[in-house]
């Protein structure tokens, strides 16, 4: 029992018997039917499954965008089932970074200002610190020189990197990425996975949702959903290495583009 307790304290996300039921008129939709899983500090996990398998509902709940119907969810030691809407917003601000499939950057707003966004809702941060931290986040995704660009002046891969910088800037306990490579071509997808791998090496915990097995292969752990339940959990012994693959790729891709 003692050993389990230590494991529990290391788990930044701890979910037990999570159930989510949507009521649409007379019909009850069981999106989650009892999900239990722990995400530990430094984890890099991929949530897999077909559409309708409940993986998006699961992400919404662990992202504090939604609350479970039943079950317990501890985020960084806090039981979220007791929290108000405003407290959930606070948790999203301080503990979670989101990356979306469609980037979701504010249009006609510079990359740097997009990255600043989470800090604007943090009362404790001065505007000077806001600038510094945002620039640092932009540097860590390799876009420091594009800080003043508008999203429509950036490529898809660059936009997603800005989104990753935004998710990083508040120093969250976990980054949640929902199909982060869904709108990107193969090479750009690998570039994005490279950034995730580098961030994970620095100790940042990351959970991504994907339906592509070859993207999931970059992570350390694959969790597969079907019909609102986890049907398989696999530890990946030897994940794909995005950095090495990128070194070998460029020539071939450039020929394709021609």
């Amino acid at each position: 029992m003692a050993g389990e307790d230590v494991n529990m304290s290391q788990a930044i996300i701890s979910v037990k018997n999570l159930v989510k039921v949507y009521t649409m008129g007379d019909v009850e939709v069981h999106a989650l039917r009892g999900v239990s899983v722990d995400i530990r500090k430094g984890d890099f996990a991929a949530i897999m499954g077909r559409s309708g398998s409940g993986k998006s509902t699961f992400m919404n709940i662990i992202g504090c965008l939604d609350v479970p119907t039943r079950g317990k969810y501890m985020l960084d030691g806090v039981d979220i089932s007791m929290l108000s809407k405003d407290q959930l917003a606070n948790l999203r601000n301080l503990k979670i970074g989101f990356v979306f499939q469609s980037f979701n950057l504010l249009s006609r707003t510079s990359a740097l200002e997009n990255v600043e966004l989470p800090l604007m809702y943090n009362r404790k941060i001065s505007s000077k610190e806001m600038r510094n931290r945002s620039m640092k986040a932009m540097e860590s995704v390799g876009l420091a020189n594009r800080a003043d660009h508008m999203p429509n002046q950036l490529s898809g891969g660059e936009q997603q990197r800005v989104a990753i910088a935004r998710s990083l800037v508040n120093d969250p306990v976990v980054i949640l990425a929902d199909e982060p490579t869904g709108n990107l071509d193969t090479r750009t997808s690998i570039e994005v996975m490279d950034i995730f791998q580098r961030l994970n090496e620095q100790g940042i915990s990351i959970v991504i949702v994907t339906h592509e097995a070859d993207i999931a292969a970059f992570t350390k752990r694959n969790i597969t959903f079907r019909d609102g339940k986890i049907i398989r959990e696999v530890e990946i012994d030897k994940p794909r290495n995005a950095r090495e693959e990128l070194i070998q790729m460029p020539v071939a891709i450039e020929e394709d583009e021609l």
């Binding site: 405003d86 917003a89 606070n90 601000n93 989101f98 979701n104 966004l117």
Partner: peptide, 16 residues
């Protein structure tokens, strides 16, 4: 609407 969603996802409260 989408902008509001983005703001809320990064921690904006209803009152913000």
């Amino acid at each position: 609407t989408r902008e509001i969603g983005i703001r809320m996802s990064v921690g904006a409260r209803g009152s913000d």
